[in-house]
Design a binder for these strands. Structure first.
Lengths: 246, 246
DNA sequence: CACCCGGATGGCACTCAGTGCGCTGCTGAA
DNA sequence: TTCAGCAGCGCACTGAGTGCCATCCGGGTG
């Protein structure tokens, strides 16, 4: 159970380098084998390179720190998310767009359930890895917030809203992701995350798919009766119901 | 500017130990003096203890790591927050309660504006300190989420809502806090944070500040004319404008 | 006063992560 | 063939963090 699941999938057609150096995969495999056997802190970098049969110096050429070997694919995923957000245009509803960006992360985890579950158990136990994971998550959150800043800049408190929405999206995503990881990757990860992100969208006023096509009706007049003290998300919910969306 | 502002205030009547060892304060003062002079990474622990005139081993007795000397009061603040939340009863509206808990953190920063601003500049520049700060913030967020879990457990998706609301509160608080720190601690920190937390409360259904008093308007009728093809978020934006929120 | 005891401190040696530098060996191009 | 460049390797070094023990100091007890 240790050889096939340790290294993450890499079958895309080489976006940066032509040939994937097997050394990187070998190091990840060796590292996880030892981490699972005797624990993260009880494993030194020397142990890893000895098992992988490479020089110590080579380890740090592929991974800037010992923690990085635990998250070998986040760098690429972050680049994917950045590209995804950069490819957005004005047509995309911002909140929905960042939710879709968050789903990219889920997809990465779901590509390798066994590996993801192992890593989850590891990070849950080792405080140092938890701290490192936080810094990774923070970079995702910053990417989302930066995008939202650009899109919500016209609003008053646009940067505040960007930060809050980004944090909420990340929190919802992680809540669903961890729930899925706790179940050993058994349930439907996408459905769980969709549900969690739906909650955030309902709270922050995003909506729904761009019309299931079909009848394109004429202009509508929407009448909303709202007490001023009522929370905004209830107003939005009411509108969604009235419009028959979502 | 280096001697009087480096050490955080400690004039409460000794909640844990009777006499505050001056060594702790001396180490913090020495550390910040060197950090500001030549930078965090260019300063070794040996430099700090040499300046403070104490043994190297003593440093690690007071601070488990070099990073901890930069955040000397967060441990106490976290304990305060935990106690505050534990002292809550059923009468307190949960979202408002966690917002008040977040204000405890702001109070700690505001107690020592000069020190807080110095530390902010430091953490902004040094990646290692940023990562450490994330782990500190994460503990605050967990405390808030744990409390909310207990209070929202009856709802469907209670733990999801707890995580999301906690993250949103922390993000709003930090957005306001950083904005205040960027202005060298000049503006009204409380007002900034109140405004940011008000946004979160409005989004998550805690009926915001009990209305700024004065005119309590009657029900409003909002009429929105919307083409079905327009993205819903534009409709929402329109409503926000109409209601005079945002 | 002599003694002892516990806590605070200092000193030392050690492990291990991470870095800089130079060497080797391979490979592809001129 | 020769040369340039690159990937890997070995080595020495810095600096954080830890364990262990000696020391010092204050106070209580005989």
């Amino acid at each position: 159970m240790s050889s096939s699941s340790a290294a993450p999938r890499r079958d895309e057609t080489a976006e940066t380098a032509g040939a994937k150096p097997p050394m990187r995969e070998a190091l990840v495999a060796a590292a996880f084998q030892l981490f699972l056997e005797r624990g993260y802190e009880q494993t030194t970098v020397d142990d890893i390179v000895a098992l992988a049969g490479v020089g110590r110096r080579s380890f740090f050429r592929y991974f800037p720190s010992k923690e990085d070997v635990v998250f070998p694919d986040h760098e690429r995923c972050l680049a994917d998310m950045t590209a995804f957000l950069a490819a957005s245009d004005e047509e995309h509803e911002p909140v929905r767009r960042v939710c879709d960006a968050a789903r990219l992360v889920l997809r990465m985890y779901a590509e390798n359930p066994a590996f993801s579950v192992q890593r989850y158990r590891l990070t849950k136990k080792v405080p140092g890895l938890r701290a490192y994971e936080l810094s990774v998550v923070w970079r995702y959150e910053r990417a989302l917030a930066e995008y939202l800043r650009g899109r919500l800049a016209v609003r008053r408190d646009g940067t505040l809203q960007a930060d809050v929405i980004a944090a909420a999206v990340v929190a919802a995503h992680n809540n669903a992701l961890r729930s899925w990881l706790r179940s050993d990757g058994q349930g439907d990860a996408s459905a769980t995350v969709d549900h969690a992100l739906g909650y955030v969208q309902s709270a922050f006023g995003a909506a729904s798919p761009p019309h299931p096509a079909g009848d394109e009706p004429a202009d509508d007049v929407v009448v909303v009766v709202s007490r001023r003290g009522a929370p905004l998300w209830r107003v939005v919910q009411e509108i969604e119901t009235t419009l028959g969306r979502d």
